[in-house]
Design a protein around this nucleic acid. Structure first.
Lengths: 346, 346
DNA sequence: CTAGGTTTCCAAAACGTTTTGCACAACACC
DNA sequence: GGTGTTGTGCAAAACGTTTTGGAAACCTAG
C-alpha cells in the first residue's frame, strides 16, 4: 500500500501527459499542438507530423474537463429516470442514447430509484453544469421546487410524463389518452359492459389520461382502484377486488403491464382463468407482456421513439445554446390484441 | 430565433453566476466565498452569513468542471455495458449505481450496443478523464487494443465477464462453472442421458465456463451448438436441431435465458411441449424467465451483487488514486427449479 | 511597550485547455 | 525598393474553481 499524494497524479504515480508535455517533447508551443489536433489553423506539415508522433508516443488525450471548461459545454447530456430495470425506461434510454450519440453527445444515466437523496445528487450535478442538457422521464411526480431551479434556466426536455405547471418546456409523450380509448373500444366491442380499472398514481398525468380515454370509449360502468404502476400494486388491488366476494366485472384494465402481470397472478390464485372468466388488458407493451401466459392484450407505447424524439428536439437547442421553447410532441400508440381478452362468458 | 453567441453564456442569454459574481456582490474575495462554502478554513460568522445569502439570491452553484479540473477528479465513474435493455445488465447497473451513490459518486452509463463506434466514443471520454474509473461489463469479447490503453493506466473493474490476458485487473464474476454444474446435476438426477447445449459465443469466458461445468456434472452425451446469447440465436439453433428429423436429446440447456426463450418458441412451433417432450433449462434468471410459460428452470445470477461488489472494490482504490491490484471475486449462484424440467418421457 | 498568537481576509498560482492578436519571415508583384 | 500577401508559430488571456502563503489588525501576556 504505497501512499499516493496529490490528486492529478495518475493512479500509477505518473502524471497523465498534458499538452505542455507534448509541446515540450516536440519542441513547439502548446498553441501549435492544439492547432495540429483541432485543425483549427493550418500548421506546417513537417511540424504537424512531428507533433502527431509525439502525441501517440506519449498517449496524449486532451483532458475533457479543461476542454469543457474553456468551451463552456461538455457534449454530454443527462438522462433522469426512476428505474432503469423497468424495460420501458430501458427502451426509452436506448432511444435517448441513440439520438445523442448520433449528434455527437454522450449520455449520463441518472437512475433516481424514486429516492430523493439520489434525485438531489443528480440535480446538483446538472445544475453544476456537468451536462449540457437533460432529458427528464419522471416516473413519479417530481419534487417541484427542485425542478423549478432548472426549467427556464437550463435546457430540459420532458419525456413521456408531463409535469403540471412547469412553465415552458419541451414535451414528448405517447398518446396515453388515445391508448386508453383503444382499449375501451376494444372491450366494448367484445361485449363487455362492466370493467375494473387498476390505475397508476392519480397525480401522474399519463395515468389520468389513460383512464379518461378508457372511460370515454368504454361507455359502460367502470370501477376504479388506484395503484402505483408497480407489479405488486396490481396484485394487491386485484386481490382486494376479489376478496369482496364474486367479481362484478367481466374485464380488467390495468394502468400498465406490470400491474396487469400482478393482477394476472392474483386472478390465477383465485382460480379464475384469463380470458375465459375475465378479460385483462395492460398498457406499455413491455417485453414481458408477450411472454406471459396468456400473452397480454396491451397498448404499444413507442418508448424508443419517445426517447429519441425528446433528445433530438432537446439537442437542437442545446447545440445553439438556447433554451428550448414550449412545445409538445404526441406520438401515436398501437393496440396489440393478444390472448388475454375475449367476449364475456355468458 | 435570437442568435446567441459565446459558449459560456447561459441559454437565456444570462451568464450563470460565478464565484466572482458572488464575491463582488458580497464585497469579499473569491477565496472567502470558497472557504465559506467548503468550510475549509474558518470565516467570520457575519461575513459568512452575508456570503451565503448572496449565494442563494444569485442561485450560485459551483461549476463542476472547474472544480474537477482543480481537484483532478470528477466523482463520477463510467459503466460500460453492451445492452441496457437486457434486464440482466439493468440489474447489474442498479447495483453499480447503488454502490457508487453510497460512496458519493455518480454513474455515467455507456451503452455500447455492441457498436464499435459507440465503444470508441465512450472509451475516448474515459481516457480524457471525464470519469474517475470504469466498471466494464463486456457482453462480447471487447476489442483488446482499445482496452489495453486503459488497463494498468486507469482504474477499471471487470464485472461478470472476464477478459483474457488483460493484465492485472479487478474481477467480479458469478460462478458460471458452478452454475453449469448445478444444471448438469439436476438434469442427470432427473434421468436425462442425452442433452443439447445451445451455448453463447465461444470466445466468452463465461459461456465456456457454463458449458464445461455442465458437461462435467451431466456425465451423459452432450451435443453443442454455438450461438450468441441473443434470443434469435436460441430460436434458430433449436430450429436447426429440429430440422434434422426427430430430436435425439431429451433435454436442452441454453446458455442463457434469452436463448432458452428463443428455443422455447421453436419447440412450441414444432409441436413439442415442455417439459413433457423435452426439458429446457436456462441461465441468468432474468425477470422473463419466471413469466414465460412454462416458467423456466434456470440459474440465478446475482447481477445486482456483481455490480455492487465490482463498484465497491473499484472505488476503494479510486478514492486513493491508486490502480486496483489484480483480484478476483466469485459470487455464488443458485439453481431455480421451475416447471420447464421433468424426467424424460422414456 | 514588545513579543507572540489569533483571527480574518486576500492575492496569486495552479489545474489543462482553446482562442486571439501579433510577430516574423518569405515571397510575390508592381 | 516599397507594399501586400501568405505561411508559420508564439505569448497571453480566459474559462471557474481551490489552495497556499502571507498581510493586516487585533488581542493577550509578560
Amino acid at each position: 500500500m504505497t501512499p499516493q499524494n496529490a490528486a492529478p497524479r495518475r493512479a500509477d504515480g505518473r502524471r497523465p501527459a498534458s499538452i505542455k508535455d507534448v509541446a515540450a517533447a516536440a519542441g513547439v508551443s502548446p498553441t501549435t499542438v492544439s492547432h495540429v489536433l483541432s485543425g483549427n489553423r493550418p500548421v506546417n506539415e513537417q511540424t504537424a507530423t512531428r507533433v502527431r508522433s509525439v502525441v501517440s508516443r506519449l498517449g496524449y488525450v486532451p483532458a475533457s474537463l479543461a476542454r469543457g471548461l474553456q468551451a463552456g459545454s461538455t457534449s454530454v447530456i443527462g438522462l433522469l429516470i426512476p428505474d432503469i430495470s423497468n424495460t420501458f425506461f430501458a427502451e426509452l434510454a436506448k432511444g435517448v442514447e441513440d439520438a445523442a450519440h448520433h449528434l455527437g453527445y454522450g449520455v449520463i444515466l441518472c437512475n433516481t430509484e424514486f429516492d430523493s437523496d439520489r434525485e438531489d445528487r443528480y440535480l446538483g450535478l446538472i445544475r453544476s453544469r456537468f451536462v449540457d442538457g437533460v432529458v427528464y422521464a419522471a416516473g413519479s411526480p417530481p419534487s417541484r421546487q427542485r425542478l423549478d431551479a432548472l426549467v427556464g434556466q437550463f435546457p430540459i426536455a420532458l419525456a413521456d410524463e408531463e409535469v403540471e405547471g412547469l412553465g415552458a418546456t419541451l414535451i414528448t409523450t405517447a398518446d396515453h389518452e388515445g391508448g386508453g380509448r383503444l382499449v375501451g373500444e376494444h372491450l366494448r366491442t367484445l361485449g363487455h359492459r362492466r370493467a375494473l380499472m387498476l390505475t397508476g398514481p392519480s397525480d401522474l398525468r399519463s395515468s389520468g389520461a389513460r383512464g379518461s380515454g378508457f372511460k370515454e370509449a368504454f361507455e359502460g360502468e367502470v370501477v376504479e382502484r388506484v395503484g402505483d404502476f408497480k407489479e405488486e400494486s396490481g396484485y394487491r388491488l386485484m386481490k382486494e377486488a376479489l376478496a369482496t366476494g364474486r367479481l362484478e366485472q367481466t374485464a380488467v384494465f390495468a394502468g400498465n403491464d406490470l400491474m396487469a402481470i400482478g393482477a394476472l397472478a392474483a386472478l390465477r390464485e383465485a382460480g379464475l382463468s384469463v380470458p375465459q372468466d375475465v378479460s385483462l388488458a395492460g398498457f406499455d407493451d413491455i417485453r414481458a407482456a408477450s411472454l406471459v401466459f396468456p400473452p397480454l392484450t396491451t397498448v404499444h407505447q413507442p418508448a424508443y421513439d419517445v426517447g429519441h424524439t425528446a433528445t433530438t428536439q432537446l439537442l437542437q437547442y442545446v447545440a445553439r445554446h438556447q433554451v428550448p421553447p414550449s412545445a409538445r410532441h404526441t406520438l401515436p400508440v398501437q393496440l396489440k390484441v393478444r390472448e388475454s381478452t375475449a367476449p364475456p362468458a355468458s
